[in-house]
């Protein structure tokens, strides 16, 4: 195994509810290499969001560690830039000022923050919409603005929580194609939650399948298809085979091998 950017080591987490203790994470462990795009899929309610919150430092795990670049980052949010499913663009800010929010919070002077964000408006297909209000943008553009707000923070790892889940299927396909193209120009290390198997295979270098709750990594699949992948790759027999393996794993069956 080569370099490791993000190491998730044996995360455990349970919640106290009225019905007793509810174990959610049961020893989740995996590594992500620098520049690697890893997707996490799992049956609904398996604890994907809890896992993400624990990695992003929004919730402390009961035990286990999150290590970024060799440093213990458990419970810390600063190595991660987080993109939620809803775009959460604020109507009282222009699109540009929405994208600089993370930098402003981090204390970057306003002008420098705007310059950094503005430089990304071209590659993100948002040029000319800097001073528009979010409500004037289409769904796909809003999602690209939200992704811009995430990557401009320049954190070590991007955490994308079903980034295209709220879009209609046509826009979603466009966005997947666009993300696959744009990411070749950057060196992002990405961890993405999705429930869309096709999206996972299309975008990822590796796909992790989580077991039902209490969850752990059930299967770790390498997607060995060359980048950049156009939509044509969907008809590749290896693509269909991977989809099949993942679907079976999601349903709780291990691949026969």
């Amino acid at each position: 195994m080569g370099e490791v950017k993000l190491a998730v080591e044996d995360l455990h987490k349970s919640f106290r509810t009225d019905a007793g203790v509810l174990p959610v994470l049961d020893g989740v462990r995996f590594d992500v290499a620098p520049g690697e795009f890893v997707s996490v899929i799992g049956p609904s309610g398996c604890g994907k969001s809890t896992l993400f919150n624990a990695i992003a430092g929004l919730e402390r795990p009961d035990s286990g560690r999150v290590v970024v670049d060799g440093r213990d980052s458990t419970g810390r949010s600063d190595p991660f830039a987080y993109m939620p499913q809803q775009d959460l663009l604020f109507p009282w800010r222009t699109v540009l000022d929405n994208t600089t929010l993370g930098l402003e919070v981090a204390g970057v002077p306003r002008r420098a923050a705007r310059d950094r964000a503005r430089a990304l408006f071209g590659p993100f297909g948002l040029a000319g919409f800097e001073s528009a209000r979010p409500q004037e943008l289409s769904g796909g553009m809003r999602q690209r603005a939200a992704l811009l707000r995430t990557v401009v923070q320049d954190r070590a790892v991007l955490l994308l929580d079903e980034p295209f889940g709220a879009l209609d299927s046509l826009t979603r396909t466009d966005m997947q194609e666009w993300l696959e193209t744009v990411r070749t120009g950057f060196e992002w290390t990405v961890l993405m939650i999705t429930h869309d198997i096709r999206e996972a295979v299309l975008l990822s270098d590796r796909v992790l399948v989580l077991a039902p709750r209490p969850t752990r990594v059930h299967l770790d699949v390498v997607v060995d298809l060359p980048h950049p992948r156009g939509l044509g790759v969907i008809t590749d027999p290896r693509f269909a085979q991977l989809e099949d393996v993942l679907l079976n794993a999601l349903r709780g069956r291990r691949p026969e091998a």
Binding site: G57, L58, D78, Y82, L88, F90, Q153, L159
Partner: peptide, 13 residues
């Protein structure tokens, strides 16, 4: 929105 709070927390606010 709780999610907006989480987003800001993830930024270290």
């Amino acid at each position: 929105d709780r999610k907006a709070t989480d987003l800001l927390r993830s930024m270290g606010a």
